[in-house]
Amino acid sequence: MCAVRDLTKTYPAVRGRRGTPGTPEVRATDGVRIDIRRGEIFGLLGPNGAGKTTLVRQLTGLMRPDRGSVEILGHDIVRHPERAARILAYLGQESTALDELTVSLAVETTGRLRGLDVRSARAERDAVLEELGLSALASRPLKKLSGGQRRLACFATALVGARPFLVLDEPTTGMDPVARRAVWGAVDRRRAEHATTVLLVTHNVIEAETVLDRVAVLDRGRVIACDTPSGLKEQVAGEVRLELVWRERAPLDVPEVAALRDRAVESGRRWSLRLAPEEARAAVAAVTGGAAFAALDDFTLATPSLEDVYLALGGSAGSVRGLVKT
């Protein structure tokens, strides 16, 4: 239902003014190709600056790509960017247009601007605020809410005047577990009842693992992997993750520990390693027995999560060396 082909966008270089250095040009999306199916919750995952926001802004008609095509539900969005507003609802990474309005007026106004008449805009407003547990905050200005509450109120504006496609740029940043649950509950209900499709930008890999049907991993403007979360995890299957936390510093005089160091990613007292199961077993035996144990504060052994895949694939930004062999 949403087909993206060869989407490329380069931010032009900015020449420096006197005293300040200019910025080089940035190819923020580079030949991106993705297909999103109807009723799917599709995720975009990637490190900061990977180009996720730039990509979704091109899908929503806010930015003209240099090259490539975007087709949503049969409409060519590059040629007719104004149609995007009638097909999808967009929740931007940060929204300031509504800051001075009350929650209730922000939602109602957005509903009316999505083409609802006054009566249905009010009815939908009440229903959405109730659904998200925002009724008690309805008469407060957005500016005076906490970060998570404000985000939830902005999410509410994306739901009034139902659209078959929701494009959400980091909808749950700053939200507590209750608010997150309200968001995913609302998304699930729309998917079950109206087969709503969702494109979601996120950094939260745990969330990604539980809510996404498929995920594309973006790095430096390119899609470097696209699969179901479990499919992606298979790429690092057969490895386990070992985390070691030392009391003060690693006992490098123990030869087994010294040998592990090359493969570890160190951050302070913490070492992070990905090992084959039998290697991990040997390593655990080495650090829990003998001289190394005295220096050990804590250790965990876990099967790989999507986070490992993320770190492994996003090799440029990740701190753990890549596992996926080319």
Partner: peptide, 16 residues
Amino acid sequence: MSVVPAEVLPGAARAD
């Protein structure tokens, strides 16, 4: 850095 082109992955193949 390790890179898997989207095309070789099972999901992408299914999608396209």
